[in-house]
Write a protein that binds this DNA or RNA. Sequence first.
DNA 1: GCGGATCAG
DNA 2: ATGGCTGATCCGC
Length: 507
Amino acid sequence: MEQLDRPELKDVPFAVGGGVLTTCNYVARQFGCRSGMAGFVAKKLCPQLVFLPLNFDKYNAKAAEVREVLAEYDARFESASIDEAYLNITEYCASRGIGPEEAVAQMRAQVHERTNITVSAGIAANARIAKICSNINKPNGQFVLPRERDAIMEFMRDLPCRKVNGIGRVLERELASLGINTCGDIYPQRQYLNRLFGDKVYEFLIRCYLGMGRTNVQPAEEYERKSVGTESTFRDMDDAAQLREKLRRTAEELQKDLERAQCKGRTLCIKVKLHTYEVLTRQAVLPKAVFLADDLYNHALPMLAKLEQEIPGMKLRLMGLRCTHLVSTKKPDPMAFFGLKSRRSESEDTSTGLKEARHAGGDGEWEQWPEDMMDAGSADNTVQEPQTGGEDMSGDGQSPFRRHGKEILPNPKKEEPVPAEDEDWWSCPICSRPQAADERQFNDHIDLCLSRQTILDTVQQDAAVAQPSPSIRSRGTTPDGKKAKERKRGRSTASAPDPRQKKLCFG
DNA sequence: GCGGATCAG
DNA sequence: ATGGCTGATCCGC
């Protein structure tokens, strides 16, 4: 949010940055503003805060200006969002005989000069680390991570996991419970990771440890859209007729969105959020691809009705509809026919060879596993895998370790320190409980308090006092009465709240 | 596939 | 005075 310091641009929440890359390519990334704080929290912390109205037309116009400049450095740059982009500036640098640092400095100066927007940038060997680097010297700065492997691994070693795109609040905590706080901590603990998190996450984490990431950059338009949906929140609603009216409105919205996206959907998904904040989805495969509100409504209604049946007295605070398995209704591009521009356009069929084309380009060395990592412990322990102690955990997928298994994992995370009497303390804006007067700890605590589970617990506690919700109870257990917990991320449902969160916020 | 859940922006 | 909305992906079943 670099611009917020600039009075003349106060209402333009826009910032960009560039990033780059190494080996023989350079990936650049532009990034943006994010306070990461909910408005109502900010207001509590800072009562004199003034909220300005949003103006997305303005932001989009400004973004277009910035992108014009970016295009001069990489015509095929990739917009990641309104205020974020990746550029491969390899060629730009090569053709001018300059280094990425200079090119990006130039680019940022140009953006500033021509749009009056300051931007920050990260310059690195691949998109993943370029993004991380773009956050280092903001606002209005850039950071270069040398492309040498040693430099990259050294950088990753001390990098907090949370800084990596894809490691969010939940995975961060789960890793922390294994003593993994930085990317460097991943490798020595790798023996647990596969069975706890599965193959995909395991490989992802190892790649994080190694500082590997994609080096391919391409216009966002070339990515195939996979779903179109709309949802809205409203005051608690349980009236059947009103719910149908809401469904109708939602269907009408979705029709508009589908028209804008020029596609129809072969699968329709309804999403509801109960007054308890519990989210449910149901989907149906349609006999044919549809986009008309009437069709959407008619196919969604039975799903809504079934939900009402499943959950007596269902009270909603959100409803949404989403189409997947999209079928494009775009007119074939005549230019494409002549092979001129190869615009993305398909008449009826969805599958094209784009995926392959996408991965054809850019295979810098930081996309490939170094040889000495090729045997870094997968499901089976290999010769190379040092047994750093502990019991042998080899076994089938039914091991209690298979999925997180919170109940058997020690949690070395320190307790929230109770502030000493003579110490200053801050009051949490959400739970109002006293917190240590330490910025980092305070922020951590707020994160925790804002977690969905905590909200859920609180609302349900309140709801339970007022009127027990039979709906939740009935789904808290499986038909045979066994626990229905231990779902994917060890995330608990209504029946199994996270004790840590409860304790910290509302205990 | 389905439904739940996490993650990013 | 909103943690809402959109889209992608992953996992277990």
